[in-house]
Design a binder for these strands. Structure first.
Length: 327
DNA sequence: AATCCTGTCAACCGCCGACAG
DNA sequence: GCTGTCGGCGGTTGACAGGAT
């Protein structure tokens, strides 16, 4: 936190210089009143018209990160933590996009939380699990289930079914396809709901149901560590759509590249692959879940522009998220 | 009680893309 | 096409609080 200050050397120019640093309660009142009465316009106009000696950017930041009425206060819930970790594994440091999936949370808040809490936790756990210290760098994305976040033993057990195959030292593309098909085979048919979230477990059998505050059962796809990947909604016409998410990439470009190679320490990415394939299929035609699967694992597969907006738009539909505590 | 250390978080900075003139 | 402005974003800073020593 910074002490309130006035930019510029000469305070006699206070009327013409912009203030910096912490916001005073009076400034907050001015901005709040202006925003509530006049709504958002050009931020530089907001600053001017509200009688603030602040730059537009500063006003915007203050409003977004602090004054906005819909902000959720308080500590992150374990569910939110898990969601942040998962979204970060998908999106990287795209805090704004992560924040967009967490109602009432700001990108700044999430960024701070990640840098101060989660990152540290993951690092500690990572170092604890590599006693010889051979892992010079840690990858939070590999440590999701070691970070003390809630996981589902059920899903771990279910995933264990696939581990022998996944742990194959040099699985062939056909092996990938086999595993993938096996998973897709276990996908429940998603054509029996109308306008409501439906059971859409990643695996069959013992997938747990989650109940939202509204009492509607939800279910998501699960990640390797029990994290919910996304829920599935069935439209009135029975078409399945996967809630979208903004463009995402785990690579430097915006194409999601799925490596065909698989080794024992790439289970995480492997399941991302699976999820992406499933979701990709689901977002196209539910009746053609299997279509194209055989062609997915080539030397290197580029899935093209993969708009996560098409995958996880409505993260609020995640079954375990309970936003009823928003104050 | 004083000092040090660490975590938290509000806010700034610099960059980028979109857009208008 | 160039330039300026603006909004948005991610990285970073630094003040403060609270725990540890």
């Amino acid at each position: 936190m910074r002490k309130p200050e006035v930019s510029g050397k000469n305070n006699s120019n206070i009327n013409y210089k912009l203030r910096k640093g912490l916001w005073s309660p009076e400034e907050d009142d001015k901005l709040m009143n202006y925003m509530l009465n006049s709504g958002q316009g050009c931020w530089s106009d907001v600053a001017r018209n509200a009688g603030l000696q602040r730059c537009g950017k500063s006003c915007r930041l203050r409003w977004i990160n602090y004054l906005r009425p819909d902000l959720k206060r308080g500590a992150f819930s374990p569910q939110e933590e898990e969601l942040i970790v998962h979204l970060h594994s998908l999106l990287g440091n795209r805090w704004s996009q992560i924040a967009a999936r967490l109602p009432g949370r700001t990108d700044n808040e999430i960024k701070n939380f990640w840098n101060s809490t989660i990152k540290k936790r993951l690092k500690n756990l990572s170092s604890n699990t590599s006693p010889n210290g051979s892992e010079s760098s840690y990858d939070p994305n590999k440590d999701l289930n070691m970070a003390g976040f809630t996981t589902s033993n059920t899903h771990q057990d279910q995933l264990a079914d696939f581990m022998p195959m996944l742990n194959s030292s040099s699985p062939s593309p056909s092996m990938h396809a086999t595993v993938l098909n096996s998973i897709i085979d276990r996908l429940p048919l998603l054509d029996h709901g109308q306008n409501m979230p439906v059971s859409g477990g990643f695996f069959n059998g013992t997938e747990p149901y989650f109940s939202s505050q509204s009492g509607v059962d939800h279910k998501g796809f699960y990640l390797e560590n029990g994290g919910v990947f996304g829920s599935v909604n069935i439209g009135a016409e029975g078409d399945m759509y996967v809630p979208p998410l903004e463009s995402v990439s785990t690579t430097s470009d915006h194409n999601l590249k799925v490596e065909s190679t698989c080794n024992t320490d790439t289970n995480n990415s492997y399941f991302d692959d699976i999820n992406s394939v499933i979701l990709n299929n689901c977002s196209n035609k539910r009746t053609e879940n299997r279509a194209g699967v055989e062609n997915l694992f080539q030397e290197e597969l580029t899935m093209g522009e993969w708009d996560l907006e098409e995958l996880m738009k409505d993260v609020s539909s995640f079954p375990f998220l309970d936003f009823s505590n928003i104050q």
